[in-house]
Simulated assay, not measured.
Amino acid sequence: MSTTTTSTGPTAHTELPRTTASKGALPLVILKRTLGSLFVLWAAVTVAFFVLRLVPGDPVKVILGPNASSPSPATLASIREEFGLNQPLVLQYLDYLTGLLQGDLGTSYVFKVPVLEILGPQILPTLQLAGLAMVFAWAMALAFTLLTVGRSPVLEALGRSVEVLFASVPQFWAGIVLLVIFAVVLGWFPVAGNDGFAALVLPSLALAIPLAGFIAQVTRTSFEEALVQPFVLSARARGLSDWSVRIRHVLRHALLPGLTLSAWAIGSLVSAAVVVEVIFARQGLGRSLVDAITSRDLPITLAVVLIIAAVYIIVNLIVDVLYRVVDPRVQEEPA
């Protein structure tokens, strides 16, 4: 983030950072964001519902399973009535929305049990994976920024090169390399599974490496701009050490673009977790989504879409609050 001082006449002002944060008092912002979030959730569910329902194929065949052979018309009619498939599409949609308002995500076509019983145990492993990946990504990005920005030309070039390299690495390739080196060859971490923190490290790093490159690139730009601002010169003139200036003053101003990127990245991490969960044979929403799409289990697919949208919205709301912690000027209403 850059903070520029401009003056017109006898008064001067400092421009607010350019961010995606909503201006105004925090309670009002939360209320606006909550109402907007409900609309976004409704839109996501609506689009997903009609797109999936319009895909060619008969859901009854999925419900009957691959071993069913020539079911009678009475059997087909009974199944359609049981799952509400005999109603017009609009009525099916309204029934689905009514169920959502009551906390009912539907019944799986394949497993014949409530969707929550299937996805409930899968939510936490995916959130743990995405959360730890975000922590690793920020740790690496801040290390690149603090150690290389404003240093010697060699360190500057090294930092930029590593950031570009990390941002270019595909997550599946990073996962395979980490698995081979640290699990198979060195044996430091488990090869697969969900057992404990050690099993979470490698898949989280596979997701974090590309994201760290992107966060470091946007943070670097803001950090470079903040280093030449008058408040930095003033801090140095007061005798503060270089590390104190970087961490206490400059870094705070450089975080906002990274926070904006993180809000988008959380949704991306939950979506991208499917690749890592397959490579490391982990439980999670990603594998459940792939299995549901493959078997055309529409209720599970819709539920995963809803969960991912909800996570994205919640993270954006948290980031909006963090903007005010990092830079209180965001709370100010523009003149």
Score class of each variant (00 low, 15 high):
169 V>S: 05
169 V>F: 07
172 F>L: 04
173 W>K: 01
174 A>R: 13
175 G>R: 06
175 G>L: 10
177 V>K: 06
177 V>C: 06
177 V>A: 09
178 L>M: 06
179 L>P: 14
182 F>P: 11
183 A>E: 09
184 V>H: 12
185 V>Y: 01
186 L>Q: 09
190 P>T: 05
190 P>Q: 03
193 G>P: 12
194 N>E: 07
194 N>W: 04
194 N>I: 10
195 D>Q: 14
196 G>F: 04
196 G>Y: 02
198 A>M: 05
202 L>T: 07
202 L>F: 06
203 P>Y: 00
204 S>F: 01
204 S>C: 04
206 A>V: 13
207 L>I: 06
207 L>Y: 01
211 L>A: 02
212 A>P: 11
212 A>K: 01
212 A>F: 01
214 F>C: 05
215 I>T: 01
222 S>K: 00
224 E>R: 11
224 E>L: 14
226 A>P: 04
226 A>T: 05
227 L>T: 09
228 V>L: 13
228 V>E: 12
230 P>M: 03
231 F>I: 14
232 V>F: 09
233 L>E: 15
233 L>R: 15
235 A>R: 07
235 A>H: 07
237 A>I: 08
237 A>V: 08
238 R>E: 08
238 R>I: 10
238 R>C: 08
238 R>S: 11
241 S>Q: 09
242 D>E: 15
242 D>W: 14
245 V>P: 12
246 R>L: 11
247 I>E: 00
250 V>D: 10
250 V>G: 12
251 L>H: 09
256 L>W: 02
256 L>Y: 02
258 G>Y: 04
262 S>C: 06
262 S>K: 03
262 S>T: 07
263 A>R: 03
265 A>I: 04
267 G>M: 04
268 S>K: 06
270 V>E: 02
273 A>S: 14
274 V>R: 08
275 V>I: 11
276 V>Q: 02
279 I>E: 05
280 F>Y: 11
281 A>N: 15
283 Q>Y: 14
283 Q>I: 14
284 G>H: 07
286 G>I: 06
287 R>H: 03
288 S>E: 14
290 V>P: 13
290 V>K: 11
292 A>T: 15
293 I>C: 11
295 S>T: 14
296 R>V: 10
300 I>C: 08
302 L>P: 15
304 V>L: 12
305 V>T: 15
306 L>T: 15
308 I>F: 08
308 I>L: 10
